[in-house]
Design a protein around this nucleic acid. Structure first.
Length: 425
RNA sequence: GGAGGGGUGGCGGAGUGGACGAUCGCACCGCUCUUGAAAAGCGGCGGGGCGCAAGCCCCCGCGGGUUCGAAUCCCGCCCCCUCCGCCA
C-alpha cells in the first residue's frame, strides 16, 4: 500500500500519479481526511493517557506514604480521565481500521517512466524477436490438436475429474513439462536460491502481495481452515521475510520457486477454454527478489533477461512489452510482459510478467532493511517475474517445433532433461 | 485430535500488580590505555507513531478484558517443545 504520509504532504502529486492509471482517485481524498481525523483523535488520546499514567504514579506514592485519602482522590481523577481516553482511543482505532481498509484498495503509483495509456492496446512493444519468421502449414496446428494426435494431452479426462479449465499432460507431454521446469530452475541456480514454499497460505500472506482483499474472487479459498491456494509463488515468497529487518549487506535476496498456481479465472468464464491458454491450475517457476531501491532496477533487468534467454534458447518467437499505466497490475510500478508466439493458434501468449513493486508490498508485509549508512530502517523493494508460465510455453513450443511428420523437435537445451531425445514422443 | 510445558531486546536470561521499554551477561560500536591487537576501564547499544522542537505515546508472540496503574491477573488466537493418538 501507499505511504499515508505522502497524502499529507503531496496529495496532488499522488492523485496525478494514480490518475495515469485511468481510475477514479476520490478514495485519496477520503483517505487523507480519515488520516487527519485519526491523528487528531490519537494525539488527544495520548495526551489523556500521559495524564493517567502520571496520576497513577502518584496514587502509588501516596499509598506508600500511607495517605489513603489522597490516593483515593487521585485514583478517582485518573479513572475519570481514563474513561475519556478510552473513548478517544476507540475512536482513533476505528478510524485507523477504516483508513487501512481504504488504503488497501488503492493501487500503487505507476513509475515515472511507465508509458501512459488506457489499456492493453496501448502497451509499448519494446522488441520482437523472430517476429519476421515464416510459418509452414505443419506449424499451423493448434496445440490441443497436436496433444490429441500424439496422446500427450488429455483434457477430456481432466475435465471429467475436475471440471472445465483443468488439464492433464500424459507421457511425453508430462515429461516435457517437467523438463521445462527443471531447465528454468537450473538456469537460475547461479544467483537465485531454490525454494519449495507451501502452496496454501494464510489470509495475511495473501494481503501482503495485494491479492487480497480486492481480488478475493480470483482465488480459491479453503474456508474451513481459513487458507487460500496460492495464485503464484510470488505470494509465499513475498512473505518470506515478513516482519524481519534485513541487513543491507545480505541484499539483494533472490529466490526461485516452482509451484502450482491456482486461479479461479472468475472474470474470464468462457474465454480461452480450449487447450492450455487459460487454466485453473498451472505450473510456473517464479523469481522473486528483495532489493534496496538503488539495486532494484538492475534486478528487474536481470529477471527480464533470464526469462528472455529461455524463450530464445527454446527457439520461440517472442516479444517484450512495456505495460502502459492503464494495464499495469494493482501493486505494480513498472511491468514488462513477455509474450511467446504460438503459430498454431496464431496468438501471442503472455508467458511472463516481470514487475517492480517499489515498497508497496514490503509495507504490507512489513519487510525492512537496515541501510549500511545512516540510522533506522527502510522498507525494501520487491520484484518478481515468471520464468516462465509453463503451459503456454508448452503450447507455443509444440506448435513451433512441430515437424511435417507431426512429431515435435526438441530444442537442444531441453535434450539433457529428456534423456537426450531429439524428437517427441 | 488429547494432555502438559513454554514464547521477554541480535543471543542467553531476570522480572508474578506500582516509576519497567525492562536487572544482568554475551555480542556489537565509540573512546581511553597500547607500536598494534588482546585484556582492562569508560560510554553507547531495539522498533514504531505524533510533533518545528522540547517532548509525549505505543510495542515483553498477537488480539481483547480487569485495574487508578499490567511484562506480571483473566479470556481468545497463533507459534514452539514433550508425551499420546493418527498418518505419506
Amino acid at each position: 500500500m501507499l505511504d499515508v504520509r505522502t497524502l499529507r504532504t503531496e496529495l496532488d502529486a499522488v492523485k496525478a500519479g494514480l490518475a495515469r492509471r485511468r481510475i477514479d482517485v476520490s478514495d485519496l481524498d477520503r483517505a487523507a481526511e480519515l488520516d487527519a481525523r485519526q491523528r487528531a483523535a490519537l494525539s488527544e488520546a495520548e495526551r489523556l493517557r500521559a495524564e493517567v499514567k502520571r496520576l497513577s504514579g502518584e496514587v502509588g506514592r501516596a499509598r506508600k506514604q500511607g495517605d489513603a485519602a489522597t490516593a483515593e482522590r487521585l485514583a478517582a481523577d485518573s479513572r475519570a480521565l481514563g474513561e475519556q481516553q478510552a473513548t478517544r482511543d476507540a475512536e482513533a482505532s476505528a478510524l485507523a481500521a477504516e483508513l487501512r481498509d481504504v488504503m488497501l484498495q488503492i493501487p500503487n503509483l505507476p513509475a515515472d517512466d511507465a508509458p501512459d495509456g488506457a489499456g492493453p492496446e496501448e502497451n509499448v512493444v519494446l522488441r520482437t524477436v523472430g517476429g519476421d519468421r515464416t510459418w509452414a502449414d505443419h506449424q499451423r496446428v493448434p496445440h490441443w490438436e497436436i496433444g490429441e494426435q500424439l496422446g500427450i494431452l488429455d483434457p477430456e479426462r481432466a475435465t471429467r475429474m475436475s471440471g472445465s479449465m483443468f488439464n492433464m499432460y500424459r507421457g511425453a507431454g508430462a515429461r516435457l513439462l517437467r523438463a521445462l521446469v527443471q531447465l528454468s530452475l537450473d538456469r537460475a541456480a547461479d544467483a537465485w536460491e531454490e525454494v519449495r514454499p507451501p502452496s496454501v497460505v494464510r489470509t495475511d500472506t495473501m494481503i501482503s502481495t495485494g491479492h487480497l482483499p480486492k481480488f478475493a474472487d480470483d482465488a480459491y479459498q479453503v474456508e474451513r481452515d481459513e487458507l487460500w491456494l496460492i495464485p503464484t509463488a510470488e505470494v509465499p515468497l513475498t512473505s518470506m521475510h515478513a516482519g524481519e529487518v534485513l541487513d543491507e549487506a545480505e541484499l539483494p535476496r533472490r529466490y526461485a520457486a516452482y509451484t502450482p498456481c491456482f486461479r479461479r479465472e472468475a472474470g474470464s468464464a468462457g474465454r480461452d477454454t480450449r487447450g492450455l491458454l487459460r487454466s485453473h491450475e498451472f505450473d510456473k517457476v517464479e523469481l522473486m527478489a528483495f532489493a534496496t531501491p538503488a539495486a532494484a532496477p538492475a534486478v528487474h533487468a536481470d529477471i527480464v533477461a533470464r526469462a528472455e534467454g529461455i524463450l530464445a534458447d527454446l527457439g520461440l518467437a517472442y516479444r517484450v512489452l512495456d505495460l502502459c499505466t492503464g494495464d499495469l497490475g494493482f501493486g505494480n510500478r513498472r511491468t514488462f510482459d513477455l509474450e511467446a508466439y504460438a503459430p498454431g493458434c496464431d496468438q501471442w501468449l503472455e508467458v511472463s510478467s516481470v514487475s517492480w513493486y517499489g515498497d508497496f508490498q514490503a509495507r504490507r508485509s512489513n519487510t525492512r532493511y537496515r541501510p549500511a549508512e545512516g540510522k533506522g530502517t527502510e522498507f525494501l523493494h520487491t520484484l518478481n517475474g515468471s520464468v516462465l508460465g509453463w503451459p503456454r510455453v508448452w503450447a507455443a513450443l509444440v506448435e513451433t517445433h512441430r515437424r511435417p511428420d507431426g512429431r515435435i523437435d526438441v530444442p537442444e537445451v531441453l535434450r539433457p532433461y529428456l534423456g537426450g531425445a531429439e524428437t517427441l514422443p
